[in-house]
Computed example of a mutant assay.
Amino acid sequence: MMNEFREIAENIAREMGGWEARREFDTGPYIIQKDDQSFYLNFGGWKNEGKVSISARYPERARELYRVEHPVIKVSYSRGAATIAKEINRRLMPSYLTALADVQQRLKEMETAESRQESIAFALADALGVSRPNREKYSRSSQIEVRTGWHGDYSKKLRAEFEVMYGGDVKIEVNTKDADIAVKIAEFLRTLKD
């Protein structure tokens, strides 16, 4: 049966015109792909006997986005690759292309926001004279921390923590044992204009 499914996937890809079929894992779904467009093909399964379920596939980081549309159609694979390809183009492709364009735009916006967030964090680290945050440690976090010390470390006269949020906002926490420093910070904050 597996060879039959591989052959059907390859034939669907061929009927789509310049698409290719592959499998990411030995037991995973088949994928048909052309350029930045791709679909998962799942054959059979519970309540799907004799059918292929064709669903949208997006870039890896799309999982980080909220409310991504995942259009799906089911077609009897006994209808043949040519009919399945026509059904994909007729029933799935229009909603998929709209959803894919939305995903690509949102990913671009996310990358721009992350770049801005990182720039702010690096500028803060440079201004404080501390090491820049390690990208690997915060790559999936919604904020980047820049610190002059660690929580609970009151051995220093002043400890500041900056959290650069995803949208670029910065949360600042300052801890000091010296009341004069606290007053100077308060006076400085009063000089800032909105």
Rank of each mutant, 00 (worst) to 15 (best):
K157I: 03
M110E: 11
A160D: 01
R106L: 12
T112Q: 15
L107P: 04
R140H: 10
K34S: 12
I32E: 04
I31N: 08
E4K: 08
A121F: 02
M93F: 06
A99C: 02
I185G: 10
S76C: 00
Q105R: 09
S95E: 13
G17T: 05
P133M: 06
K74G: 10
E163A: 14
S142G: 14
N11S: 14
E109I: 05
L128H: 00
R61L: 13
G152Y: 05
P29E: 13
N89S: 11
I172C: 15
V103E: 08
K47I: 01
G80S: 12
T27Y: 13
E114I: 00
S155N: 05
M16E: 01
D26P: 01
E69H: 06
P94E: 14
D178C: 11
G167K: 03
R79N: 10
L124C: 01
I181R: 05
E111H: 14
T83V: 14
G168Y: 07
Y58Q: 05
R190N: 11
E64M: 10
I12N: 02
L158T: 01
E69K: 03
N134C: 08
R140D: 13
S78P: 00
F5H: 14
M16Y: 00
D169C: 03
T83Q: 12
P133E: 07
T98A: 14
S155M: 04
A13Q: 09
Y154M: 15
K47R: 09
D126L: 03
T191H: 05
K108L: 15
E60Q: 03
G28M: 03
K184R: 10
Q105F: 06
Q37C: 13
Y58N: 02
K177I: 12
R23P: 08
V174K: 03
S139R: 10
Y77G: 11
L189M: 12
A82D: 10
R90Q: 09
L65N: 06
E60F: 06
E163Q: 13
I144S: 04
K47T: 07
A85H: 04
R14I: 09
R67A: 13
S142N: 13
G18T: 03
Q117P: 11
E64V: 02
I73T: 02
G152R: 00
A56N: 03
E20V: 01
K34L: 10
V72F: 11
Y77T: 11
E87H: 06
I8G: 01
L92V: 04
E7N: 15
L124E: 00
G80C: 06
N134M: 13
I181H: 11
E20W: 00
A9C: 01
A101D: 15
P59L: 13
R79S: 12
G17L: 03
A62I: 02
G149D: 15
S141A: 15
Q104P: 01
R159D: 07
S55H: 02
A82W: 05
T112E: 15
E15S: 15
R190S: 13
A21M: 01
G28D: 14
I185R: 01
A113C: 08
K177H: 14
A179M: 04
A101L: 04
F188P: 00
I181Y: 08
D102W: 02
I12P: 00
P94R: 08
R135G: 04
I31M: 14
E187C: 09
Y40I: 06
A13F: 11
S139Q: 12
I185E: 06
S53G: 09
K74L: 05
Y58G: 02
R159E: 11
V183Q: 10
N89F: 10
Y30D: 15
T83E: 15
E24R: 01
D169I: 00
R63F: 15
R91Y: 11
L92D: 09
